[in-house]
Design a protein around this nucleic acid. Sequence first.
DNA 1: ATCCTAATTAATGTATACTTTAATGAATGC
DNA 2: GCATTCATTAAAGTATACATTAATTAGGAT
Lengths: 225, 225
Amino acid sequence: MPNQTEKTPPNFSIAVTKLREMIFSSELGPGTDHLETELAQTLGMSRTPVREALLVLEAQGLLTMRPRKGVRISPLSPDDMSEIYDVLTELESLAAADAARAGYNADDLKALTQTISDMDKALAIEDREGWAQADDRFHQELMRLGGNSRAARIVGMMADQVRRARLVTLYMRPLPIKSNEDHTKVLNAIREGDEETARLLHREHRLSAKEMLTTLLQRHRLNKI
Amino acid sequence: MPNQTEKTPPNFSIAVTKLREMIFSSELGPGTDHLETELAQTLGMSRTPVREALLVLEAQGLLTMRPRKGVRISPLSPDDMSEIYDVLTELESLAAADAARAGYNADDLKALTQTISDMDKALAIEDREGWAQADDRFHQELMRLGGNSRAARIVGMMADQVRRARLVTLYMRPLPIKSNEDHTKVLNAIREGDEETARLLHREHRLSAKEMLTTLLQRHRLNKI
DNA sequence: ATCCTAATTAATGTATACTTTAATGAATGC
DNA sequence: GCATTCATTAAAGTATACATTAATTAGGAT
Protein backbone atom coordinates (compact mmCIF):
# COMPACT_ATOMS: atom_id res chain seq x y z
CA MET A 1 0.00 0.00 0.00
CA PRO A 2 1.34 3.44 -0.89
CA ASN A 3 2.08 5.54 2.15
CA GLN A 4 -0.54 8.21 1.67
CA THR A 5 0.77 10.32 4.56
CA GLU A 6 1.27 13.56 2.67
CA LYS A 7 0.37 16.09 5.31
CA THR A 8 -0.18 19.47 3.72
CA PRO A 9 1.14 22.26 5.92
CA PRO A 10 -1.32 25.04 6.74
CA ASN A 11 -1.58 27.86 4.23
CA PHE A 12 -0.09 30.47 6.50
CA SER A 13 3.13 28.55 6.89
CA ILE A 14 3.21 27.96 3.14
CA ALA A 15 2.84 31.71 2.84
CA VAL A 16 5.79 32.30 5.17
CA THR A 17 7.97 30.03 3.07
CA LYS A 18 6.88 31.42 -0.28
CA LEU A 19 7.15 35.05 0.78
CA ARG A 20 10.62 34.46 2.17
CA GLU A 21 11.69 32.92 -1.10
CA MET A 22 10.20 35.81 -3.01
CA ILE A 23 12.12 38.25 -0.82
CA PHE A 24 15.42 36.38 -1.16
CA SER A 25 15.02 36.14 -4.92
CA SER A 26 14.18 39.84 -5.09
CA GLU A 27 10.89 38.98 -6.73
CA LEU A 28 9.78 41.26 -3.92
CA GLY A 29 12.55 43.80 -4.21
CA PRO A 30 14.13 45.70 -1.33
CA GLY A 31 12.23 48.86 -0.52
CA THR A 32 9.19 47.92 -2.57
CA ASP A 33 5.63 48.09 -1.22
CA HIS A 34 2.96 45.45 -1.55
CA LEU A 35 -0.69 45.28 -0.60
CA GLU A 36 -2.02 42.38 1.42
CA THR A 37 -4.68 41.83 -1.22
CA GLU A 38 -2.16 41.59 -4.06
CA LEU A 39 0.03 39.15 -2.16
CA ALA A 40 -3.00 37.06 -1.30
CA GLN A 41 -3.94 36.97 -4.98
CA THR A 42 -0.40 36.02 -5.97
CA LEU A 43 -0.26 33.20 -3.44
CA GLY A 44 -3.74 32.02 -4.28
CA MET A 45 -5.15 32.26 -0.81
CA SER A 46 -7.22 34.70 1.24
CA ARG A 47 -5.83 37.65 3.13
CA THR A 48 -6.07 35.94 6.51
CA PRO A 49 -3.17 33.47 6.25
CA VAL A 50 -1.13 35.99 4.27
CA ARG A 51 -1.53 38.59 6.97
CA GLU A 52 -0.48 36.06 9.58
CA ALA A 53 2.61 35.21 7.55
CA LEU A 54 3.43 38.89 7.16
CA LEU A 55 3.32 39.40 10.91
CA VAL A 56 5.80 36.59 11.38
CA LEU A 57 8.11 37.96 8.71
CA GLU A 58 7.87 41.38 10.27
CA ALA A 59 8.92 39.92 13.62
CA GLN A 60 11.90 38.43 11.79
CA GLY A 61 12.84 41.80 10.39
CA LEU A 62 12.32 41.02 6.73
CA LEU A 63 9.60 43.61 6.22
CA THR A 64 7.54 46.21 8.00
CA MET A 65 3.78 46.59 7.86
CA ARG A 66 2.76 50.14 7.29
CA PRO A 67 -0.98 50.71 7.56
CA ARG A 68 -2.52 51.89 4.26
CA LYS A 69 0.82 51.87 2.46
CA GLY A 70 1.32 48.15 2.13
CA VAL A 71 4.17 46.08 3.48
CA ARG A 72 7.61 47.47 2.79
CA ILE A 73 10.33 44.92 2.08
CA SER A 74 13.15 46.03 4.39
CA PRO A 75 16.08 47.38 2.43
CA LEU A 76 19.57 46.97 3.83
CA SER A 77 21.95 49.89 4.12
CA PRO A 78 25.66 49.38 4.78
CA ASP A 79 24.91 50.44 8.36
CA ASP A 80 22.26 47.76 8.71
CA MET A 81 24.73 45.28 7.31
CA SER A 82 27.26 46.39 9.88
CA GLU A 83 24.78 45.95 12.73
CA ILE A 84 23.86 42.49 11.59
CA TYR A 85 27.43 41.36 11.15
CA ASP A 86 28.28 42.57 14.64
CA VAL A 87 25.49 40.44 16.07
CA LEU A 88 26.56 37.47 13.98
CA THR A 89 30.14 37.95 15.11
CA GLU A 90 29.28 37.84 18.80
CA LEU A 91 26.89 34.92 18.70
CA GLU A 92 28.92 32.76 16.34
CA SER A 93 32.07 33.40 18.35
CA LEU A 94 30.16 32.26 21.41
CA ALA A 95 29.16 29.12 19.53
CA ALA A 96 32.75 28.48 18.48
CA ALA A 97 33.89 28.77 22.09
CA ASP A 98 31.07 26.55 23.35
CA ALA A 99 31.78 23.97 20.67
CA ALA A 100 35.45 23.90 21.63
CA ARG A 101 34.56 23.45 25.27
CA ALA A 102 32.11 20.65 24.49
CA GLY A 103 35.01 18.38 23.53
CA TYR A 104 33.52 16.94 20.36
CA ASN A 105 35.27 14.01 18.73
CA ALA A 106 36.16 13.64 15.05
CA ASP A 107 32.84 12.01 14.29
CA ASP A 108 30.86 14.81 15.89
CA LEU A 109 32.82 17.26 13.77
CA LYS A 110 32.32 15.32 10.54
CA ALA A 111 29.56 17.54 9.21
CA LEU A 112 31.56 20.69 9.89
CA THR A 113 34.64 19.20 8.28
CA GLN A 114 32.57 18.23 5.28
CA THR A 115 31.34 21.77 4.69
CA ILE A 116 34.95 22.95 4.59
CA SER A 117 35.98 20.40 2.02
CA ASP A 118 32.87 21.27 0.02
CA MET A 119 33.99 24.88 0.04
CA ASP A 120 37.46 23.81 -1.09
CA LYS A 121 36.04 21.83 -3.96
CA ALA A 122 33.79 24.69 -5.01
CA LEU A 123 36.71 27.11 -4.84
CA ALA A 124 38.86 24.85 -7.02
CA ILE A 125 36.39 25.23 -9.89
CA GLU A 126 35.54 28.82 -8.97
CA ASP A 127 31.94 27.87 -8.26
CA ARG A 128 31.00 30.85 -6.12
CA GLU A 129 27.41 29.86 -5.51
CA GLY A 130 28.43 26.37 -4.50
CA TRP A 131 30.93 27.93 -2.11
CA ALA A 132 28.27 30.23 -0.66
CA GLN A 133 25.93 27.34 0.01
CA ALA A 134 28.64 25.34 1.75
CA ASP A 135 29.63 28.44 3.70
CA ASP A 136 26.04 28.78 4.89
CA ARG A 137 26.10 25.18 6.01
CA PHE A 138 29.37 25.76 7.86
CA HIS A 139 27.90 28.58 9.88
CA GLN A 140 24.68 26.68 10.54
CA GLU A 141 26.56 23.62 11.68
CA LEU A 142 28.80 25.72 13.89
CA MET A 143 25.73 27.11 15.63
CA ARG A 144 24.34 23.62 16.05
CA LEU A 145 27.56 22.48 17.66
CA GLY A 146 27.51 25.52 19.93
CA GLY A 147 24.35 24.09 21.45
CA ASN A 148 22.58 27.36 22.22
CA SER A 149 19.26 27.03 20.40
CA ARG A 150 18.31 30.64 20.93
CA ALA A 151 21.58 31.95 19.59
CA ALA A 152 21.16 29.61 16.62
CA ARG A 153 17.70 30.95 15.85
CA ILE A 154 18.83 34.54 16.04
CA VAL A 155 21.81 33.87 13.82
CA GLY A 156 19.50 32.19 11.34
CA MET A 157 17.26 35.25 11.25
CA MET A 158 20.18 37.62 10.81
CA ALA A 159 21.66 35.43 8.08
CA ASP A 160 18.32 35.64 6.27
CA GLN A 161 18.41 39.40 6.45
CA VAL A 162 21.79 39.64 4.71
CA ARG A 163 21.09 36.89 2.20
CA ARG A 164 20.21 39.24 -0.66
CA ALA A 165 23.23 41.44 -0.07
CA ARG A 166 25.59 38.49 0.12
CA LEU A 167 24.28 37.22 -3.17
CA VAL A 168 24.88 40.57 -4.81
CA THR A 169 28.42 40.86 -3.51
CA LEU A 170 29.27 37.25 -4.21
CA TYR A 171 30.62 38.06 -7.67
CA MET A 172 32.20 41.37 -6.72
CA ARG A 173 34.42 40.05 -3.98
CA PRO A 174 37.74 38.29 -4.45
CA LEU A 175 37.63 34.51 -4.41
CA PRO A 176 37.26 33.61 -0.72
CA ILE A 177 40.56 31.78 -0.34
CA LYS A 178 41.44 33.52 2.90
CA SER A 179 37.98 32.85 4.25
CA ASN A 180 38.49 29.16 3.85
CA GLU A 181 41.79 29.17 5.66
CA ASP A 182 39.96 30.88 8.51
CA HIS A 183 37.36 28.15 8.64
CA THR A 184 40.00 25.48 8.89
CA LYS A 185 41.76 27.25 11.73
CA VAL A 186 38.49 27.59 13.64
CA LEU A 187 37.76 23.92 13.12
CA ASN A 188 41.19 22.99 14.44
CA ALA A 189 40.76 25.11 17.54
CA ILE A 190 37.42 23.45 18.19
CA ARG A 191 38.93 20.02 17.64
CA GLU A 192 41.68 20.81 20.12
CA GLY A 193 39.20 22.13 22.64
CA ASP A 194 40.87 25.51 22.70
CA GLU A 195 37.93 27.68 23.68
CA GLU A 196 39.48 31.12 23.60
CA THR A 197 41.37 30.55 20.38
CA ALA A 198 38.24 29.30 18.66
CA ARG A 199 36.37 32.35 19.85
CA LEU A 200 39.05 34.81 18.78
CA LEU A 201 39.74 33.21 15.43
CA HIS A 202 36.11 33.16 14.54
CA ARG A 203 35.71 36.72 15.68
CA GLU A 204 38.56 37.82 13.41
CA HIS A 205 37.04 35.86 10.56
CA ARG A 206 33.70 37.58 10.91
CA LEU A 207 35.16 41.02 11.45
CA SER A 208 37.14 40.83 8.23
CA ALA A 209 34.10 39.51 6.36
CA LYS A 210 32.12 42.49 7.66
CA GLU A 211 34.86 44.88 6.67
CA MET A 212 35.04 43.43 3.18
CA LEU A 213 31.30 43.42 2.55
CA THR A 214 30.52 46.86 3.90
CA THR A 215 33.33 48.53 1.97
CA LEU A 216 32.25 46.64 -1.11
CA LEU A 217 28.71 47.92 -0.76
CA GLN A 218 29.88 51.47 -0.17
CA ARG A 219 32.33 51.41 -3.05
CA HIS A 220 29.57 50.31 -5.38
CA ARG A 221 27.16 52.88 -3.97
CA LEU A 222 24.74 50.13 -2.95
CA ASN A 223 22.99 52.11 -0.27
CA LYS A 224 19.73 50.24 -0.38
CA ILE A 225 19.86 46.60 -1.16
CA MET B 1 -9.65 73.80 22.22
CA PRO B 2 -8.95 70.43 23.87
CA ASN B 3 -6.50 68.34 21.88
CA GLN B 4 -8.78 65.45 20.98
CA THR B 5 -6.00 63.41 19.39
CA GLU B 6 -6.50 60.18 21.33
CA LYS B 7 -5.59 57.58 18.74
CA THR B 8 -6.69 54.13 19.86
CA PRO B 9 -4.17 51.46 18.87
CA PRO B 10 -5.52 48.51 16.89
CA ASN B 11 -6.91 45.60 18.87
CA PHE B 12 -4.20 43.18 17.92
CA SER B 13 -1.49 45.37 19.35
CA ILE B 14 -3.57 45.86 22.48
CA ALA B 15 -3.73 42.08 22.61
CA VAL B 16 0.06 41.82 22.35
CA THR B 17 0.48 44.20 25.27
CA LYS B 18 -2.18 42.62 27.45
CA LEU B 19 -1.07 39.06 26.80
CA ARG B 20 2.52 39.97 27.60
CA GLU B 21 1.45 41.51 30.87
CA MET B 22 -0.61 38.44 31.66
CA ILE B 23 2.41 36.25 30.99
CA PHE B 24 4.77 38.35 33.11
CA SER B 25 2.32 38.44 35.98
CA SER B 26 1.85 34.67 35.73
CA GLU B 27 -1.86 35.23 35.24
CA LEU B 28 -1.00 32.95 32.31
CA GLY B 29 1.34 30.65 34.16
CA PRO B 30 4.42 28.95 32.72
CA GLY B 31 3.57 25.67 31.05
CA THR B 32 -0.17 26.30 31.02
CA ASP B 33 -2.33 25.89 27.90
CA HIS B 34 -4.95 28.28 26.62
CA LEU B 35 -7.42 28.18 23.76
CA GLU B 36 -7.63 31.00 21.29
CA THR B 37 -11.34 31.23 21.96
CA GLU B 38 -10.89 31.61 25.72
CA LEU B 39 -8.23 34.28 25.32
CA ALA B 40 -10.42 36.14 22.86
CA GLN B 41 -13.24 36.04 25.36
CA THR B 42 -10.98 37.25 28.16
CA LEU B 43 -9.69 40.13 26.08
CA GLY B 44 -13.12 41.01 24.80
CA MET B 45 -12.33 40.76 21.13
CA SER B 46 -12.66 38.23 18.34
CA ARG B 47 -10.20 35.45 17.61
CA THR B 48 -8.64 37.24 14.65
CA PRO B 49 -6.62 39.93 16.45
CA VAL B 50 -5.84 37.52 19.29
CA ARG B 51 -4.43 34.99 16.88
CA GLU B 52 -2.31 37.66 15.26
CA ALA B 53 -0.99 38.71 18.65
CA LEU B 54 -0.22 35.11 19.53
CA LEU B 55 1.85 34.69 16.38
CA VAL B 56 3.91 37.72 17.33
CA LEU B 57 4.43 36.47 20.87
CA GLU B 58 5.40 33.08 19.52
CA ALA B 59 8.02 34.71 17.31
CA GLN B 60 9.32 36.39 20.47
CA GLY B 61 9.61 33.07 22.21
CA LEU B 62 7.05 33.70 24.94
CA LEU B 63 4.74 30.88 23.89
CA THR B 64 4.26 28.17 21.32
CA MET B 65 1.11 27.49 19.34
CA ARG B 66 0.20 23.85 19.33
CA PRO B 67 -2.70 23.02 17.02
CA ARG B 68 -5.72 21.62 18.91
CA LYS B 69 -3.95 21.86 22.27
CA GLY B 70 -4.01 25.58 22.74
CA VAL B 71 -1.07 27.90 23.15
CA ARG B 72 1.51 26.79 25.69
CA ILE B 73 3.13 29.51 27.74
CA SER B 74 6.84 28.72 27.45
CA PRO B 75 8.27 27.56 30.76
CA LEU B 76 11.90 28.29 31.54
CA SER B 77 14.29 25.60 32.72
CA PRO B 78 17.67 26.42 34.24
CA ASP B 79 19.15 25.40 30.88
CA ASP B 80 16.94 27.87 29.04
CA MET B 81 17.99 30.51 31.50
CA SER B 82 21.60 29.67 30.83
CA GLU B 83 21.11 29.97 27.07
CA ILE B 84 19.42 33.31 27.41
CA TYR B 85 22.02 34.73 29.74
CA ASP B 86 24.77 33.68 27.36
CA VAL B 87 23.10 35.61 24.55
CA LEU B 88 22.57 38.60 26.82
CA THR B 89 26.20 38.44 27.89
CA GLU B 90 27.56 38.59 24.36
CA LEU B 91 25.29 41.30 23.04
CA GLU B 92 25.47 43.55 26.07
CA SER B 93 29.23 43.24 26.18
CA LEU B 94 29.27 44.29 22.55
CA ALA B 95 27.15 47.29 23.48
CA ALA B 96 29.47 48.20 26.33
CA ALA B 97 32.44 48.10 23.98
CA ASP B 98 30.63 50.11 21.31
CA ALA B 99 29.50 52.66 23.86
CA ALA B 100 33.07 53.07 25.12
CA ARG B 101 34.32 53.55 21.58
CA ALA B 102 31.64 56.10 20.80
CA GLY B 103 33.30 58.59 23.16
CA TYR B 104 30.18 59.82 24.92
CA ASN B 105 30.46 62.83 27.17
CA ALA B 106 29.11 63.18 30.71
CA ASP B 107 25.81 64.51 29.45
CA ASP B 108 25.30 61.58 27.08
CA LEU B 109 25.92 59.24 29.99
CA LYS B 110 23.57 61.06 32.34
CA ALA B 111 20.72 58.59 31.96
CA LEU B 112 23.01 55.63 32.58
CA THR B 113 24.53 57.34 35.61
CA GLN B 114 21.07 58.05 36.91
CA THR B 115 20.02 54.39 36.80
CA ILE B 116 23.04 53.51 38.92
CA SER B 117 22.25 56.08 41.57
CA ASP B 118 18.63 54.88 41.51
CA MET B 119 19.88 51.39 42.21
CA ASP B 120 22.00 52.69 45.05
CA LYS B 121 19.08 54.48 46.59
CA ALA B 122 16.88 51.42 46.28
CA LEU B 123 19.57 49.25 47.84
CA ALA B 124 19.95 51.61 50.77
CA ILE B 125 16.37 50.94 51.79
CA GLU B 126 16.46 47.32 50.63
CA ASP B 127 13.81 48.01 48.02
CA ARG B 128 14.46 45.03 45.79
CA GLU B 129 11.77 45.75 43.26
CA GLY B 130 12.87 49.32 42.89
CA TRP B 131 16.40 48.03 42.36
CA ALA B 132 15.20 45.56 39.73
CA GLN B 133 13.42 48.28 37.80
CA ALA B 134 16.45 50.54 37.80
CA ASP B 135 18.62 47.57 36.82
CA ASP B 136 16.36 46.97 33.83
CA ARG B 137 16.73 50.60 32.84
CA PHE B 138 20.52 50.33 33.17
CA HIS B 139 20.66 47.46 30.74
CA GLN B 140 18.22 49.11 28.36
CA GLU B 141 20.14 52.35 28.39
CA LEU B 142 23.40 50.49 27.87
CA MET B 143 21.96 48.91 24.73
CA ARG B 144 20.75 52.27 23.52
CA LEU B 145 24.22 53.72 23.95
CA GLY B 146 25.69 50.74 22.13
CA GLY B 147 23.82 51.95 19.08
CA ASN B 148 23.06 48.56 17.51
CA SER B 149 19.29 48.57 17.15
CA ARG B 150 19.09 44.90 16.28
CA ALA B 151 21.15 43.84 19.25
CA ALA B 152 18.95 46.05 21.41
CA ARG B 153 15.77 44.41 20.14
CA ILE B 154 17.12 40.94 20.72
CA VAL B 155 18.27 41.80 24.21
CA GLY B 156 14.82 43.21 24.91
CA MET B 157 13.18 39.98 23.83
CA MET B 158 15.54 37.86 25.88
CA ALA B 159 15.05 40.08 28.91
CA ASP B 160 11.30 39.54 28.55
CA GLN B 161 11.79 35.81 28.54
CA VAL B 162 13.62 35.79 31.87
CA ARG B 163 11.40 38.41 33.50
CA ARG B 164 9.27 35.94 35.42
CA ALA B 165 12.28 34.00 36.67
CA ARG B 166 14.08 37.15 37.76
CA LEU B 167 11.05 38.21 39.74
CA VAL B 168 10.91 34.87 41.51
CA THR B 169 14.58 34.91 42.41
CA LEU B 170 14.61 38.56 43.38
CA TYR B 171 13.87 37.78 47.02
CA MET B 172 15.98 34.63 47.19
CA ARG B 173 19.23 36.21 46.13
CA PRO B 174 21.56 38.21 48.33
CA LEU B 175 21.19 41.97 48.15
CA PRO B 176 22.87 42.93 44.87
CA ILE B 177 25.65 45.04 46.33
CA LYS B 178 28.35 43.47 44.21
CA SER B 179 26.18 43.89 41.13
CA ASN B 180 26.08 47.60 41.66
CA GLU B 181 29.83 47.91 42.02
CA ASP B 182 30.06 46.14 38.67
CA HIS B 183 27.74 48.65 37.05
CA THR B 184 29.83 51.53 38.25
CA LYS B 185 33.03 50.00 36.91
CA VAL B 186 31.44 49.44 33.53
CA LEU B 187 30.22 53.02 33.46
CA ASN B 188 33.72 54.26 34.26
CA ALA B 189 35.28 52.19 31.49
CA ILE B 190 32.73 53.59 29.04
CA ARG B 191 33.39 57.12 30.26
CA GLU B 192 37.11 56.63 29.77
CA GLY B 193 36.57 55.17 26.32
CA ASP B 194 38.28 51.93 27.29
CA GLU B 195 36.57 49.57 24.90
CA GLU B 196 38.09 46.25 25.91
CA THR B 197 37.81 46.90 29.62
CA ALA B 198 34.16 47.84 29.27
CA ARG B 199 33.54 44.68 27.31
CA LEU B 200 35.34 42.42 29.74
CA LEU B 201 33.92 43.99 32.87
CA HIS B 202 30.42 43.69 31.58
CA ARG B 203 31.01 40.14 30.50
CA GLU B 204 32.19 39.24 33.99
CA HIS B 205 29.20 40.99 35.46
CA ARG B 206 26.77 39.00 33.35
CA LEU B 207 28.55 35.71 33.81
CA SER B 208 28.37 35.99 37.57
CA ALA B 209 24.70 36.99 37.38
CA LYS B 210 24.04 33.91 35.29
CA GLU B 211 25.95 31.71 37.70
CA MET B 212 24.03 33.09 40.63
CA LEU B 213 20.59 32.77 39.09
CA THR B 214 20.97 29.32 37.60
CA THR B 215 22.37 27.83 40.80
CA LEU B 216 19.59 29.56 42.72
CA LEU B 217 16.96 27.98 40.47
CA GLN B 218 18.56 24.57 40.73
CA ARG B 219 18.96 24.74 44.48
CA HIS B 220 15.28 25.56 44.85
CA ARG B 221 14.32 22.84 42.38
CA LEU B 222 12.66 25.40 40.12
CA ASN B 223 12.88 23.35 36.96
CA LYS B 224 9.95 24.93 35.21
CA ILE B 225 9.32 28.56 35.83
C1' DA C 1 -5.19 81.26 -6.12
C1' DT C 2 -5.05 79.19 -1.75
C1' DC C 3 -6.60 77.20 2.21
C1' DC C 4 -9.96 74.78 4.62
C1' DT C 5 -13.59 71.40 4.80
C1' DA C 6 -16.07 67.56 3.54
C1' DA C 7 -16.86 63.56 0.68
C1' DT C 8 -14.83 59.70 -1.42
C1' DT C 9 -12.22 55.79 -1.53
C1' DA C 10 -9.04 52.30 -0.97
C1' DA C 11 -6.72 49.69 2.19
C1' DT C 12 -6.35 47.83 6.72
C1' DG C 13 -8.49 45.92 10.91
C1' DT C 14 -12.05 42.87 12.82
C1' DA C 15 -15.92 39.77 13.34
C1' DT C 16 -18.10 35.87 11.91
C1' DA C 17 -19.33 31.91 9.48
C1' DC C 18 -17.57 28.02 7.41
C1' DT C 19 -14.02 24.16 6.48
C1' DT C 20 -10.63 21.16 7.78
C1' DT C 21 -8.37 18.32 10.91
C1' DA C 22 -6.94 15.67 14.71
C1' DA C 23 -8.21 13.89 19.22
C1' DT C 24 -11.63 11.34 21.75
C1' DG C 25 -14.64 7.79 22.53
C1' DA C 26 -17.89 4.34 20.90
C1' DA C 27 -18.84 0.34 18.34
C1' DT C 28 -17.55 -3.67 16.03
C1' DG C 29 -14.75 -7.53 14.88
C1' DC C 30 -11.22 -10.64 16.17
C1' DG D 1 -10.68 -8.43 26.40
C1' DC D 2 -8.14 -5.98 23.14
C1' DA D 3 -7.43 -3.68 19.12
C1' DT D 4 -8.99 -1.34 15.11
C1' DT D 5 -12.00 1.53 12.70
C1' DC D 6 -15.45 4.86 12.38
C1' DA D 7 -18.26 8.64 14.23
C1' DT D 8 -18.29 12.62 16.93
C1' DT D 9 -16.70 16.83 18.17
C1' DA D 10 -14.01 20.56 19.46
C1' DA D 11 -10.47 23.40 18.04
C1' DA D 12 -7.64 25.51 14.63
C1' DG D 13 -7.38 27.23 9.94
C1' DT D 14 -9.50 29.99 6.29
C1' DA D 15 -12.63 32.80 3.60
C1' DT D 16 -15.48 36.53 3.44
C1' DA D 17 -18.17 40.31 4.63
C1' DC D 18 -18.16 44.27 7.15
C1' DA D 19 -16.27 48.39 9.96
C1' DT D 20 -12.83 51.66 10.48
C1' DT D 21 -9.66 54.89 9.12
C1' DA D 22 -6.47 57.78 6.93
C1' DA D 23 -5.21 59.58 2.47
C1' DT D 24 -6.78 61.99 -1.46
C1' DT D 25 -9.50 64.83 -4.04
C1' DA D 26 -13.14 67.94 -5.02
C1' DG D 27 -15.63 71.92 -3.78
C1' DG D 28 -16.41 76.15 -1.77
C1' DA D 29 -15.29 80.22 0.72
C1' DT D 30 -12.15 83.87 1.50
